[in-house]
Design a protein around this nucleic acid. Sequence first.
DNA 1: CCGACGTACTGTATCGATACAGAAGGAACT
DNA 2: AGTTCCTTCTGTATCGATACAGTACGTCGG
Lengths: 356, 356
Amino acid sequence: MKATLQTIADELGVSRSTVSNAYSRPDQLSPELRARILSAAQRLGYAGPNPTARSLRSGKVNAIGVLLTDNLSMAFTDPYAVAYLRGLAEAASARETSLLLLNLPKDEAAGRRVISNAAVDAFCLYCVPDWHSALELVRSRGVPIVIGEDPQAFGPDASYVGIDERAAARRLGEHVANLGHRDIAVVAHWIVDDGVTSQVHADLADLRYYVTGERVRGFRDALLAAGVPWERVVLINAAANQREEGTEAAAHALDRLDRATAILCTSDVLALGVLDALRVRGLQAGRDVSVTGFDDIPEAEAAGLTTIRQPSVERGRLAGELLLDPPEDPALRRLTLPVSLVVRSTTGPNTAKEKS
Amino acid sequence: MKATLQTIADELGVSRSTVSNAYSRPDQLSPELRARILSAAQRLGYAGPNPTARSLRSGKVNAIGVLLTDNLSMAFTDPYAVAYLRGLAEAASARETSLLLLNLPKDEAAGRRVISNAAVDAFCLYCVPDWHSALELVRSRGVPIVIGEDPQAFGPDASYVGIDERAAARRLGEHVANLGHRDIAVVAHWIVDDGVTSQVHADLADLRYYVTGERVRGFRDALLAAGVPWERVVLINAAANQREEGTEAAAHALDRLDRATAILCTSDVLALGVLDALRVRGLQAGRDVSVTGFDDIPEAEAAGLTTIRQPSVERGRLAGELLLDPPEDPALRRLTLPVSLVVRSTTGPNTAKEKS
DNA sequence: CCGACGTACTGTATCGATACAGAAGGAACT
DNA sequence: AGTTCCTTCTGTATCGATACAGTACGTCGG
């Protein structure tokens, strides 16, 4: 029916191997024969070796699987995720490798099927809740993995490109504490996974999501060191890492008698939402209330947001390179990248009179 | 070395077929045997049937190839593209199918290799310049294709989900003409593919990119009908479909003696950039200069942008469905979706005194 | 003239699964 | 008892390529 290597081979009376070589190893046959083969292929509507068959035999598929949680649009909407993906795509594209976006559905069995069926040379995991049930299956696939969050999550075999989340958050906390703030709120995504934006009790044990957990713990480290009891901090869970949720979360910090003078957010996106909330209330960021973000996404600069700059595109790019050209030395497969504190206008000295 | 179906089969003394059935057709064997097989598999570190081998035999890979031009970040950055991709991903995910993002590099041979090597059940083409050299190869792969731009591009075999670009643009042109505007500029992406943002001569023959071409032709239809000679219209090419380019393009319409009173843009993103340019110059959109966009991306509403609303997510979703569940009737594989004119505050009556 | 070597091509085994026809055994019905 | 049918499993062919060893045929140095 459809043309295969054999069809072309029969047509010209040569062997299948030779036709294969015409495509994959041109130096193995004379230019004349190769030209005849290619023209016969064109005539017969043969588009080149079947990628699936080729992959089966050669053991390579030229694709990296990117695991995304069921809210796939997040990957396209969240600025940090977009930057990371772009870096990953660049590294992949440079090696003629494609990205297979794997959308993990809510249904667990379906998720396992998606992972099992994915023809990939490697997996890249980022922004995946580390408690997800299907992750063990990823490891059992036996292909290289790169992770960007909890460095311990997949054991020492997995490559890792990340930052010291906790130390970075600590710097934000120190910055705010040094400005004299004592009434502090923390807005964080996925402190608890209940899909509700509301204040939660400061019970750190609930921090199952690594990134949020480390960042919140970093804030705590800094505040405790500055003499701010952790119980005094208002902890607010954002249902999603979205600007609107940041706005809603901010209400819990602003619309109360003991209004926070500083709001630490676990992401720039949330912080931008908090800034929206300030604006609505006629409050000025950096004067009335200090706000910090995390990531330094492109929008942060225009908003004057004090934040931690992390190399998002670079993280993605390095992740791709670790997967496709893994260094011999295992130590070089675990990278912790530097970050920097970027102080802009949304943080300033505490001007509220000190409470008793 | 690595476990295969045969490994498990040998371990338990059953046939390979039975092990295969344990995974793919559980009704074909007794629950007890199946349980034994699965537990043996777990013990031997077998993660389930090799996806590549399965695909070769079954002829399905559960993936849709999405062609992206070399500027892959566009797919993640442009709001319309993000919406479309999201719809596509939703449709795919509902059928346990993944998206293979194919980044076409500048190098033509490499691009052909990427297309040839892509293991996919179908291709989705959107935002691909229709003159791209590798497109013919896509067709020759012989898998279903869905396109979203020029309905004629791939012949009647390709599915199509689009809108009547020209008629939609005409409505914008009519709207602006009805408001009395006669000094009009058009800002369009890819009028010419020279990577420069600048005024170009109104030579429509250069409009190789279908979408831009149709939209510009739609503007022309309306303006001609309203008695505005096409030669009088200032045509400005935007080097990229980005907000900044819109701002730069606007300068060519605004910083001149015969300033345009209306600027028609081929996308919301460009229009938002034009609005930025107005703001910088102290001009008010809708009063001093009318501006229109196209697409109705989420940001358009907040900006008060008059635009054409098109069902972006729906386009993607339908594209996915046409590929994965093609209707019998060929007529149902070619969908033209309705659009609507959304009039907001960036357009208003022409207040400039009429020139001679 | 002979062995060594290079070039151009061939032939078979193999990658890891699924499809499908078929076999063995027991239950059910006439 | 004979036939049919169902359940449960088996065995072989096949999907479409690549890997690799091998063959045929010069050519060339000694």
